[in-house]
Design a binder for these strands. Structure first.
Lengths: 176, 176
DNA sequence: TACTGTGTTTAGTAACTACTAAACGTTCTA
DNA sequence: TAGAACGTTTAGTAGTTACTAAACACAGTA
């Protein structure tokens, strides 16, 4: 017997919820995105509420952070007071805005603090056992370089028009 | 006045803790790694305890998951009952084992479930409004391709001997 | 003006997580 | 065999998080 479309949508939503949770995001966020992503037309807040089983409040707040991440877009129709939401289907765009968003986060502050620690060492203004200072210097420098590499890789990905097959195989060919 | 080495270590540990927390990992895990990473010699569990301020229990369990991720290594000296731990300093190796670890996780199960959903659609065994089924099919296919691209990119990174400057600039040059 | 249909904010809660303290199990030593 | 030196496990806890329920604000309409 064939699977019902509604059932399939529900399974898919379930799956995205788990993926969402895995990355430390609220699972409701994954569910909301899934529902919007599979909808041919933009949905109102109440439609999202009924299709996800969440409350208005939850959807209201989480849809806002989704919008800030560039994963959904909010729009409105003339002569209709409702807001409508639709999923961004160009994942490349989403990645770009997510990475940009992260730029000003706690994460970057911490990374910068490592950089400052390194600067102190480079300036030679750290007192203590000479050999150990040298060792610590080397280690922190290595970590800093690793951070830079990650950062460059992220920039590379951002530069891509898409993560389509062609681009990735190009990358692979270089690395071979 | 010069900064004391011990102070510098403490700041660094603080920083790694925050980074750790940012990625959804226990902050204690970051602290433990930091302490080991800056130590010229392997440390015993008790030494880690005093330097991190955590309890034996916490260090015992978290050091184990760090070891499973390949970020620290446990060793022992002959004629000494203590275990000793040291940080892996080749981050490329660590990344590889982390990604490998993830392979068997909840995340991959969820990704596979998306694949199965797609298979159902490809087989044409989904009932419902024809146009909508087609739409959903297209969307899920796009998502699946995105997952594949990410996966390929991860493979590419794994293949790298290191994420050093040379490799990344090579990648960037291809993408230009 | 009251009323209705919106989205937002707030207070509270259930579940989870990262820990602590302490009991426990082992292995070595006296 | 007792005891000490380890690492592990377990029970409990403080803090956090993702939510719910409901009050709220605001605009359009009768």
């Amino acid at each position: 017997m064939p699977t019902k479309l509604s059932q399939l949508k529900q399974d898919f939503t379930e799956g995205l919820s788990q993926i969402s949770r895995f990355w430390g995001l609220p699972k409701g966020m994954g569910a909301i995105f899934a529902v919007l992503y599979l909808s041919p037309t933009p949905l109102s807040l109440d439609e999202v509420v009924t299709q996800t089983g969440l409350t208005k409040g939850a959807v209201s707040t989480e849809v806002r952070t989704l919008a800030r991440m560039g994963l959904v877009h909010r729009s409105s129709k003339l002569g209709d007071r409702k807001d409508y939401y639709e999923a961004e289907s160009d994942f490349y765009k989403s990645i770009r805005s997510i990475l940009k968003e992260r730029q000003n986060s706690e994460f970057d502050r911490a990374v910068r603090s490592v950089k400052e620690t390194l600067d102190l060492l480079e300036a030679g203004s750290v007192s203590g056992d000479e050999a150990e200072v040298a060792f610590v210097h080397e280690r922190i420098k290595a970590l800093q370089e690793f951070f830079n590499a990650i950062d460059n890789l992220a920039s590379a990905v951002i530069k891509l028009e898409s993560l389509g097959f062609g681009n990735v195989t190009k990358i692979l060919s270089v690395l071979k």
